[in-house]
Amino acid sequence: MIIVSYILMLIGAFFYAIGGLGIYRMPDLFNRAQAGTKATTLGTLSLLLGVGVQQPSWIPKLLLIAVFIAVTNPVGSSTLARAGYHSGVPIYEGTQVDDLKELYKKEDGLDE
């Protein structure tokens, strides 16, 4: 049982490392947000599961932490990406399509 727990915890920690590396290597804010959010969410879930296998009496609290992080982490990075697009952070030059431009052009037109 303890081996299963450590394998889950190692997987979680590995995805934390991937998340950090993704934040460092990706070329612009939006790609960084993608790598960071996904990797840390699964990392946390896997790590909490590993801890729960070793300490079954902690499972309710761990469940609360897991649900909270799974709900709020994507909301946080979506808000950040939206704010970043609004204030015009540089976008990676390899970006293919940009459907968002029309939305903000319309909004800016209304403001003036």
Partner: peptide, 23 residues
Amino acid sequence: LVKANIDVAFRVLNPRMPINPGF
């Protein structure tokens, strides 16, 4: 979520970083 993370791991660990982003 698990599939997404395996995908991200491959993209981040690949030295050439195969990304082709867009909105």
